[in-house]
Design a protein around this nucleic acid. Structure first.
Lengths: 68, 68
DNA sequence: ATATAAATATCCCGATATGGTATATTATGG
DNA sequence: CCATAATATACCATATCGGGATATTTATAT
């Protein structure tokens, strides 16, 4: 999860992200550290929130946005 | 998960896919039906196996391959 | 149409992973 | 330093998972 990097680049806190996406701050922390994996619905919410592809979010490509 | 569609297009069985990826046939079945979600490592194995992006696999784009 | 086999779905269960609350740690500003 | 914001960790009840076994559905041959 490239989440931490993306989030910091936008200058938003774990808590704000958590509140915006209806989740807990500690969950965000755990996703960023890789301690736990967000389910698909949450993964998609995060990708949509930052407007990046899942592949980018998971560190599989350098291109932030998906095709089409 | 667009897995079923992709797999069928390539004409391979759940069992073969399962064996190729070191998993169980019933897991494949469950991922296809959406009853359960593969963890990220498995998700990536599947995407690599079929050479498609995660975004495509999850049905978020019509473009099968990821950028770069 | 029926028998056989292949493919897929479902049941059960112990093990693992998850989300939530609370709390601890670390960073930042005054 | 101190206060506060930001982030990480502990604990626990519950949900989800993988795997073996089995049932069901679908294809194939006779």
């Amino acid at each position: 999860m490239r989440l931490k990097e993306i989030r910091k680049k936008r200058g938003i806190s774990q808590l704000k992200l958590a509140m915006d996406l209806n989740m807990n701050q500690n969950s965000v922390s755990r996703y960023e550290s890789g301690e736990r994996e967000a389910d698909y619905a949450t993964l998609i919410k995060i990708a949509d929130y930052f407007d990046v592809s899942i592949d980018y979010l998971l560190g599989r490509t350098e291109n932030p946005r998906m095709n089409r």
